[in-house]
Design a protein around this nucleic acid. Structure first.
Lengths: 148, 148
DNA sequence: TGTTGTTAGTTACAAAAACAACTATTACAC
DNA sequence: GTGTAATAGTTGTTTTTGTAACTAACAACA
């Protein structure tokens, strides 16, 4: 079986590599400016983008585990980026929204993200970007069960 | 600024998402069969693919930090997957090789990886795969300094 | 030789993630 | 209503990772 299999072309490996590299610089921005972790940044962005949400809503959209969200929300509300209001009808549910400060951070980081995106995209050709997006989204939607 | 920025199309986000999904099923194989972590699997693969290497060699190729490698090697040799031989001339250096057991694990996992790769690729069109590979490799090689 | 600097790799400690068990509240079946 | 199951979210404990400091061995050179 003299296949030309190579670690460097193994898709999961390449994906992780690219993901890591392309997250790093941006990560440093929200970390340095607002002391946020990736989970917190994600929660902030979801709230900024979609408005009021519950923790479960975010978990569904972001495919994040509820404990991650719980802790991210905790830290974000501790620092007054996020406000939580218990639902009147169902007291298990908390509605989350950005505070003014949270929105300011979101606006700031969003602008950075847009510029960052431009920088990344500029490394590629237009058609490559399209193909990349399409491929990534297909892969993300793929549920590869127990294929062994 | 009514830009159509969307979290779902933010490249670092998409990359992470796809990387996570496409690593998961495979991860479970080496975890379940050999109790390995990702770092250990990577070290094993590098040794299987390129033969004898030092920890530093692996670190360079895999872009992994030396502490990760040190710990991975420790666990792998603990379980007799990897053997370490101190260099005669320079006693700081340890040459790492797979044991018979390590090679068996490598062969097994490599076969799984190849099938896994096929499964992933089959989700995409041929030209998409090419574009994806090209794009990922460009992004990985990109050093995005302090762009703010 | 002795001093200083470098390199390979390890270890210790702090930060973060993963996993499981838990509380509180609501829903449903009888 | 009462008992059981389900849901939203939290907390505790264990793994894993990240960062920095460290040891051991070698190199370079006065």
């Amino acid at each position: 079986m003299p296949s030309d299999f190579d670690l460097e072309t193994f898709l999961p490996y390449m994906l992780n590599q690219a993901a890591e590299v392309s997250s790093l610089s941006f990560q440093q921005v929200y970390k340095k400016r607002y002391g946020m972790l990736r989970t917190e940044w994600r929660v902030l962005f979801h709230l900024g983008l979609y408005g009021q949400m519950t923790a479960s809503d975010i978990g569904e959209r972001a495919r994040m585990h509820k404990t991650k969200i719980s802790r991210a929300v905790h830290r974000l509300s501790e620092r007054r980026f996020v406000e939580r209001v218990t639902d009147k009808k169902d007291r298990r549910i908390a509605h989350l929204t950005l505070t003014a400060q949270g929105r300011a951070a979101y606006d700031d980081l969003r602008a950075v993200a847009e510029r960052y995106e431009q920088t990344l995209v500029s490394q590629l050709q237009a058609n490559e970007v399209d193909a990349l997006r399409r491929a990534l989204s297909k892969l993300s939607d793929t549920a590869l069960g127990d294929f062994t």
